[in-house]
Design a binder for these strands. Sequence first.
DNA 1: ATCTTATTTGCATACGTATGCAAACGATGT
DNA 2: ACATCGTTTGCATACGTATGCAAATAAGAT
Lengths: 339, 339
Amino acid sequence: MSGGVTKGVRVTAHDVAKRAGVSQSAVSRVFTPGTSVSPLMAEKVQKAADELGYRPNVLARSLITGRSRIIGLLVSYLENQFYPEALARLSKAFQAKGYRILVFMVSRDEGETDRVVQDLLDYQVDGIVAASVGLSDDVALKCTRSGVPAVLFNRGQGHPDLCEVTSDNRGGARQVADLFVTSGRERIAHISGWSGSSTARERAEGFKERLAERGTCLFAEACGDFTRDGAVGAARRLFNVPRGERPDAVFVANDHMAFAVMDVLRFELKLQIPDEVSVVGYDDVPMAGWPSYNLTTVSQSLDDMVLATVNQLLARIKKEELPATHERLAGRLIRRGSA
Amino acid sequence: MSGGVTKGVRVTAHDVAKRAGVSQSAVSRVFTPGTSVSPLMAEKVQKAADELGYRPNVLARSLITGRSRIIGLLVSYLENQFYPEALARLSKAFQAKGYRILVFMVSRDEGETDRVVQDLLDYQVDGIVAASVGLSDDVALKCTRSGVPAVLFNRGQGHPDLCEVTSDNRGGARQVADLFVTSGRERIAHISGWSGSSTARERAEGFKERLAERGTCLFAEACGDFTRDGAVGAARRLFNVPRGERPDAVFVANDHMAFAVMDVLRFELKLQIPDEVSVVGYDDVPMAGWPSYNLTTVSQSLDDMVLATVNQLLARIKKEELPATHERLAGRLIRRGSA
DNA sequence: ATCTTATTTGCATACGTATGCAAACGATGT
DNA sequence: ACATCGTTTGCATACGTATGCAAATAAGAT
């Protein structure tokens, strides 16, 4: 169509075929692993392709094969260091398997999530990873009907069609309870995450559960909503009170909030950590190991979670019939200076 | 082909057309904005489409239109809070314009970057954003020849075909020099970024330049490579020396390294900040405002950079002939407690 | 009622690739 | 020499959609 334009010209398999004096199918076969071509043919085609700078059009290929080799990733909370880490490793892991990642940022609004998943399906993604994002039943059904497997990363909702990869939030939280009780803390508080997330609920439940088993109970509780601002507010509500009513230990539902809490305790309320109050987080993000925070926390082994996610998803992409699994990886208490 | 499988069945425009008793073209028009269809037709088609759960196949559409509405994003350094922030905002901004982001993680290895860009081109992306990543001349040429515009985000390399959006690194660094000199610091050091990046070089040059203009010069310098470990090493080399040879001010080439430097100074060397040594960073990531660091730094106005990037890229996607521009946004010194 | 003009619709084809099928080819054995 | 078998190649078609073109229809003007 374009007459003299020198850029923007797409060179197709037909062009290569013409130049090499072979058929378009031959070109296709040379660029499709697992097909049989004679060495001579391969050489001729490669030469012509190199001269023209030909590369197969992945979109056209996807149209036929029905596989785009694209994985959709839903993510929010990127300000929490855990998720950039997860994103980086998921991306690398999928890249290594020949898949690419299409990223969608979503807020906590469920309506938005639904629209975004619909978008992903429109792009014919081969699978979906929802990192810390819930999927409505409606949209989950759409996915399975389209034959697109999905796995929830670090979030569970007990849906039978959805894979889940989480850490053993209850178990992790129980270890924190044990730590506090054993070290003699008496006014034990909890700053919880967003109540709409299973992760937040499980951590809170496991914590209280174990406190009860050890013969004590929660002294105070506030919701931090998994945001920094929320955590700052919660910390003030719990600790900006007369000395006697002040907790002497607090389990914060994730590291991101724990940093905020520590900042409030140290710089606003001038409290000594861990002498006057112990702080424990959850996730073990890299920053937790930095000396400024030196935060005791429960480690989610990110590598294992990523591995499980990738394996599950790719397995279900290969064999649609595979049942959805729920993997729950053990967490490990990392003792540092804050408790 | 498939006989009784209930999932994985793709419903196409033909199916909708058949059910609605119209032609496939009609269906296409109903789902293509800007085409003319009668209200009656629109209603019939919508009804059939809803009943079948039809959604247009974006890949097939792209094949025809030649536009995938996908933007390729190259990113590294996700452990530096600046980039998740940038990623989030770029993603949101492009989403708002109807584009999606295909993310590729790359290391600093140039060979890998080239392969990855080739991958992006294979996916027929409409444009490329390289965040803090350099593009070889070879691969830049390939992009322009394919008609795919690229913009370098927070990195410049003076290539005539590539857009660049950076902050005025020289100017920002000069402000830091002024701050140190004016506040009477006498042994002024610099911890630089990776020397392969223009950002690192410009910050170092601007800093030294201004020091010279103010009649002084650099007391010591070390390379931190833009990594935390690198910065830790650099801080030790510069500061783990007899008291008299110790710098009393240090400009660290970005915030991410500055946090590491502060940790070493405070917790390993027991130095008081800012009394014994001033520390200034660059970027103004959110963490810089947290009381634990309270870091004086140069703000890159991320929103403006993102806006410029999106505008430039979309403009060049619309009109291929537009010349590549180099935007250089002013930075602002944010005075906090560390200097 | 007829002619003109504007609008809506269907037909056919194109986008760039993969793949079943049959023809052509080469090698091997007798 | 021929028959047999395995390999390589080209032909034709399909994937799901957009779009130029012409036919059909509706609307408006005289």
